[in-house]
Design a protein around this nucleic acid. Structure first.
Length: 465
RNA sequence: GGCGGCAUAGCCAAGUGGUAAGGCAGCGGUCUGCAAAACCGCUAUUCUCCGGUUCAAAUCCGGAUGCCGCCUCCA
C-alpha cells in the first residue's frame, strides 16, 4: 500500500518513495540542550517517532539521525544574542559542556519514558565542527558568503529559491519586521555561518577556523550532519512548524548552494501544543511544563501523554489541559483493562493477525499518519467479532506503531508480600461473609497501589495503571 | 501591517461534495454480597453566523464574527 505524507515543500500530500530503496534517511531536528524539554517539544518528537514507526511498518529500513545542538544557538534575534549554552552555564554555575551533557541525558530519559525509539545516530554539533567549517569554505568559494565585523554571513540574495519552503513574500516580511536590524547584513534574511568570538568575553566553546576563532552559526550544523550521516539518502527532514520560516529555510539555502543538489525531498512539520485556551507554551510565560513537573509528579503515566497526542492529528494544534490529560490517562487505562480482559477470556497462543483490520490500519496511518483514525480503528477492531486470540495478536501488531506497550500491563507480575497477606485475609473475610472487613481490606490494598477483582475464577490482583 | 491556520456534542477531536469516526465524561442495563473491571445499549436532524454554487455542502465560493500561530529565540 502506498504511503502518503504531507510535504511542506509542495503543500500537498505526496506518495513517499525513498531515494535509495535499501535504506530511508530520516533527519529529525533534536533539542538544544540548555534546559529541559517541555511537553510541547515532546509532542513533536512523538510525531517523529510515529513517522519512523510507520516507515518501518511499511517495510522501509530507516536510518534515523538526530542532532544535539550544544553550541551556536543564540537567545537573541538576527544572530545578535547570547549563546544559549553559555547563558545556561552562567545561570547554573556549570561549564557549557556540563550543561550540554546534563540536559542531553535528561532528554534521553524523557524519550525513554515516552517509548520513543532511539535514533540510529546521535550527533552533537560540537562533534562536527570540521565538517561545518568545510561546508562554509565551499560556500565561500562559490561566492555565497560575505564578512561582517562579527562573522561570516550567507547572502540569501544569491539563492533565488530562498522561499520555496516557507512560501513567504519577502517584501512583506521586510516591511513587517519589528526587530532591531543588523546594519551590516545585506538582506534581512541573511544569517550567520560562522560567528567570531567576542573580543571582550571569553567563550567556553570556541574553535579556530580560516576566518578566525569563533563558533558555528545555528543552521550550519544540521546541513553538515545531514550530509555526513545521510549522504545520498536525504529523504525526510522533520521539525516543529516554527522551523519552517527560518531554520529549515536556511538549511536548504546553504546546503543546496553548496552541493548544487536538492537537500531533502520531504519536509514534515509538527504543529504546536497550546495551553490555556490556545496560548503557545513559552518558557518565559511561566508555563514551562515538563514531563517530570506536570505529568510524572502528578501521577500521570508518560504513555498517557503519548496516547493524548494520538487524539489530535500532528498537523493541527493540540490543546493541553489537565482535563484532556486525565481523559487520556483514563482512555489508556481502559484500553489496557480491556486487553487484560480479552487475554483472560481465552487461550492466546493460537491468535493470528487479522489481515482485513491490518489493511485498514495501514490505510489510516499511511494517510499522512492519521493517528486519530488509527485509534478509532483499534476500538472498532476490539468491538468486532474476532476471536479474543486474534484481537490480541492484531492489537500487538498495531502496537508496533502505537508504541503504547500494550503487551504489558497484565496481572501484576510480582505482588509484594504485604499485599498478598491482605489479599489472603480478604479471601477469608469473604468466605465468612464479613463484608465490612472485606471492603476494608480492599481499600487497604488499593492504598498500596493494587486493585482486586472478584471474578468467577476467584480474586485477582492487578496494579492500578 | 503582511502571511497562514482554526471554529464540529459537557470536554478532547476525526471527517474536505453524498447525508456526522473515536476517546473522555454522563445515563440505563448485565455481572457482583456491594464494588471494581469487563460487556451491551443510549447521548449532535446537525457541524460559529449570513448569503451563494450544486440533485446533494460540516466539506466548495463570498462575507461577518471569534480564536490562534508565524513574520523575533522557539518543537
Amino acid at each position: 500500500m502506498k504511503l502518503y505524507l504531507y510535504n511542506t515543500l509542495t503543500r500537498r500530500k505526496e506518495e513517499f518513495i525513498p531515494i535509495n530503496p535499501e535504506e530511508t534517511g530520516l533527519y529529525t531536528c533534536g533539542p538544544t540542550v540548555y534546559n529541559y524539554a517541555h511537553i510541547g517539544n515532546l509532542r513533536t518528537y512523538i510525531f517523529e517517532d510515529i513517522l519512523k514507526r510507520v516507515l518501518r511498518y511499511n517495510g522501509f529500513r530507516v536510518r534515523h539521525v538526530m542532532n544535539i545542538t550544544d553550541v551556536g544557538h543564540l537567545t537573541g534575534d538576527r544572530d545578535m544574542g547570547e549563546d544559549k549554552l553559555e547563558k545556561g552555564a552562567a545561570r547554573e554555575g556549570k561549564s557549557a559542556w556540563e550543561i550540554a551533557e546534563y540536559y542531553t541525558q535528561a532528554f534521553k530519559k524523557d524519550m525513554k519514558a515516552l517509548n520513543l525509539l532511539e535514533p540510529d545516530i546521535w550527533c552533537r554539533a560540537t562533534d562536527t565542527i570540521p565538517e561545518q567549517i568545510e561546508l562554509i569554505r565551499i560556500l565561500e568559494e562559490k561566492g555565497y558568503t560575505y564578512r561582517t565585523a562579527d562573522g561570516i554571513y550567507f547572502d540569501t540574495g544569491k539563492f533565488p529559491d530562498y522561499t520555496k519552503l516557507s512560501h513567504q513574500n519577502l517584501d512583506a516580511l521586510q516591511e513587517g519586521a519589528r526587530v532591531e536590524k543588523n546594519p551590516e547584513k545585506r538582506n534581512a534574511t541573511d544569517f550567520a555561518l560562522w560567528k567570531f568570538s567576542p573580543p571582550d568575553v571569553q567563550r567556553q566553546m570556541e574553535w579556530d577556523s580560516p576566518w578566525g576563532r569563533g563558533f558555528p552559526g545555528w543552521h550550519i550544523e544540521c546541513s553538515a550532519m545531514s550530509m555526513k550521516f545521510l549522504g545520498e539518502r536525504l529523504d525526510i527532514h522533520c521539525g516543529g512548524t516554527d522551523h519552517i520560516n527560518v531554520h529549515h529555510t536556511n538549511e536548504i539555502a546553504q546546503s543546496e548552494a553548496a552541493s548544487g543538489k536538492q537537500f531533502f525531498r520531504f519536509w514534515m512539520h509538527g504543529a504546536f501544543l497550546n495551553i490555556e485556551g490556545g496560548k503557545k507554551m513559552a518558557k518565559s510565560a511561566g508555563n514551562f511544563l515538563t514531563l517530570e513537573n506536570t505529568l510524572i509528579a502528578k501521577g500521570f503515566d508518560p504513555l498517557s501523554y503519548r496516547f493524548a497526542a494520538f487524539q489530535t492529528h500532528y498537523r493541527n494544534p493540540m490543546e493541553y489541559t489537565s482535563e484532556s490529560m486525565q481523559a487520556a490517562q483514563n482512555g489508556l487505562l481502559h484500553l489496557k483493562n480491556r486487553l487484560r480482559s480479552i487475554r483472560e477470556s481465552a487461550d492466546m497462543t493460537s491468535g493470528s493477525i487479522c489481515a482485513d483490520f491490518q489493511q485498514k490500519f495501514l490505510a489510516e496511518i499511511n494517510d499522512d499518519l492519521n493517528m486519530p483514525r488509527a485509534m478509532a480503528l483499534v476500538q472498532e477492531m476490539l468491538k468486532s467479532d474476532l476471536s479474543p486470540a486474534d484481537k490480541n495478536a492484531t492489537v500487538l501488531d498495531f502496537d508496533r506503531v502505537l508504541g503504547l506497550n500494550l503487551d504489558k500491563g497484565d496481572a501484576a507480575e510480582s505482588i509484594p508480600p504485604q499485599v498478598q497477606e491482605l489479599a489472603r485475609a480478604r479471601q477469608k473475610a469473604r468466605k465468612e461473609k464479613n463484608w465490612a472487613e472485606s471492603d476494608r481490606l480492599r481499600d487497604a490494598i488499593r492504598e498500596l497501589g493494587y486493585m482486586v477483582r472478584d471474578t468467577k475464577e476467584g480474586m485477582k490482583i492487578d496494579t492500578i495503571g
